[in-house]
C-alpha cells in the first residue's frame, strides 16, 4: 500500500522541474524535497528517509547514472525514476536494465509519473 506521506526526493538541475513537481506530488499525496545536484543529495541527511528518487540524467558534475551507481555501491535500495529531456530509447533500456523503475522523457504527463511512482512503491 502506498504510504500517503512517503518522502519522494527530486534531484534535477532544472529549476522548472524543482518548482512544479513538488505540487504535483503533493496532489498525489507524497511529501517531497528537491536537490539541485547529485552531490547535494548525497550530502543531505534525507537519503535514509527517501522512499523514492526522481532523478535527472544529465546534470553538471555528477550525472543521474553516477548517483545511481553510487547509491548501489552504498547498498541503498531507494527505487529510482529517471527523468530526462533527452529522448533516447537506448538509454532508457540500459537504465531499466541497470535496475531503475523507469525512465520518463520530459515532458511527461502526470499519469505516467503516477504509474511509475506506484510501481516504485510496489517494489518497495
Amino acid at each position: 500500500m502506498m504510504n500517503p506521506r512517503s518522502l519522494v526526493s527530486i534531484v534535477d538541475d532544472d529549476e522548472s522541474v524543482r518548482e512544479s513537481l513538488p505540487d504535483l506530488l503533493k496532489e498525489f499525496g507524497f511529501a517531497s524535497q528537491t536537490f539541485t545536484s547529485a552531490e547535494a543529495f548525497l550530502a543531505s541527511d534525507g537519503i535514509s528517509r527517501t522512499e523514492c528518487l526522481i532523478l535527472d540524467i544529465a546534470m553538471p558534475g555528477m550525472s543521474g547514472p553516477d548517483l545511481q551507481r553510487e547509491l548501489k555501491r552504498r547498498q541503498s535500495k531507494i527505487p529510482i525514476i529517471f527523468i530526462t529531456a533527452q529522448r533516447d530509447e537506448s538509454v532508457r533500456t540500459q537504465l531499466v536494465e541497470s535496475g531503475a523503475i523507469g525512465c520518463l522523457f520530459k515532458p511527461f504527463n502526470d499519469t505516467a509519473l503516477l504509474d511509475a511512482l506506484n510501481a516504485a512503491f510496489r517494489v518497495k
Binding site: 522548472s16 513537481l21 505540487d23 529531456a85 522523457f105 520530459k106 511527461f108 502526470d110
Partner: peptide, 10 residues
C-alpha cells in the same frame, strides 16, 4: 523539453 516538462507538470 526542459521547459515543456515544467509546463506539463504545472
Amino acid at each position: 523539453n526542459q521547459p515543456l516538462s515544467g509546463i506539463v507538470t504545472n
